[in-house]
Design a protein around this nucleic acid. Structure first.
Lengths: 208, 208
DNA sequence: CAAAAAGTTGACCTTTTGGTATGTTTTTTC
DNA sequence: GAAAAAACATACCAAAAGGTCAACTTTTTG
């Protein structure tokens, strides 16, 4: 009587349904506020079935976080020395803005974790991110020393790019309300990318 | 046997203790995750006493939010036409950075509300903030038309300033971890203010 | 100083929630 | 096609949570 789902895929499909539902619930209610029942309802499964795939609520959350971090990792873009500052920064901004608009939920989960003290992400920040920032800061420093760009604190610059790009995902409800709009449209990605690229390159003394 | 607190102040003191405790709890656990018991413990009062001052958890939350919005309102700084773009923008950035460093908790409560869809803040954004942004955007437009600053989309600029300044409050745990520091120090406010002012003024074509 | 108002508190009740136990159905394997 | 594994589902339980109650103490008021 059941639909003939591709065999061996039931697990994968159920897990995906659960994780999607969980992502929504965790954003809307926070970790403690989200209930296994609501995740189950939202995923269209009985609660016991959800707990069949994930031992408990914390495991669901860990899975959601892991998914989020993978996305962060892929979406971060890169800053490559051989591109030179202008191209590298533009590429980086473009990647982050695209990521924000295409994956706002991941950005929100991530933001809430950090706001709440990053209990589950301290290690990630301490090892991976710290390393990443140092590496990229070194590249900026080279460019500055070579006179390829203005003297701008590289770490502060990275934080500035992170904050301005993520803002469009995390604060979408505020932005849309203020602009009296219901949803982002396709143009918006391009418009925001252009604005930020332009503005930040100028801030770095790389334009006009 | 009780300490001789200034008469008529018991209420005010208790309420303040409760709201401070509640602010911490709501940040750490979210609205649904925070428990009246934990707020009471954190405030050093029995639960029944907390519920004597606030009918229920939602009322506590409303009170915290109201406090937060008042702070936002006071801390927003202003953008005044007669200052001219350079001074006005610098004043504005300085006010917002100070606000972030001095009131990170308010900023976090506010951020969490918006990330979660701004259920309780939609009205605030729809009326007050939208109006504020339009007003200030008009001032920027004047400056641009007068050739006093580069052609920069005013609304995007406001969002950029909001995001970059609030970032230091909301994401403090990430920033500190990456920089391998335990806490912000006094210098940091000044350093961040200078960096942002410098960078943003240059982005607006108002410097070098 | 006595009555009223304000504040304090432990006990209690109901609902919600995370999680388990157990049995049934479906799918896969051999 | 039967045995084994995976998936599904109902009922249930103990702990936690929001909130009420009623009694008690302290403070204020006239």
């Amino acid at each position: 009587m059941k639909k003939n789902n591709k065999p061996q895929k039931v697990r994968a499909i159920s897990i995906e349904k659960i994780l999607n539902a969980a992502q929504d619930e965790f954003i809307l209610q926070g970790y403690k506020g989200a209930t296994v029942q609501s995740i189950a309802d939202s995923a269209g499964l009985p609660k016991a079935n959800v707990l069949y795939y994930f031992k408990n609520k914390e495991n669901i959350y860990h899975a959601v976080l892991e998914q989020t971090l993978n996305m962060w990792d892929e979406g971060i873009g890169d800053i490559e020395a051989h591109d030179g500052p202008k191209v590298a920064i533009e590429k980086f901004i473009r990647a982050k803005v695209a990521m924000s608009f295409n994956n706002p939920k991941a950005s929100k989960i991530y933001a809430m974790e950090i706001i709440q003290g990053a209990q589950h992400l301290k290690d990630f920040a301490r090892t991976y991110q710290r390393q990443w920032v140092r590496e990229k800061a070194k590249i900026f420093k080279c460019w500055i020393d070579n006179g390829e760009m203005k003297q701008v604190d590289p770490v502060s610059l990275i934080f500035l790019i992170w904050s301005t790009t993520q803002h469009y995902a995390d604060f979408d409800s505020q932005i849309l309300t203020i602009m009296n709009r219901a949803d982002y449209e396709d143009d918006d990605i391009e418009h925001v990318t252009n604005f930020l690229t332009d503005f930040i390159l100028r801030g770095c003394g790389l334009k006009q």
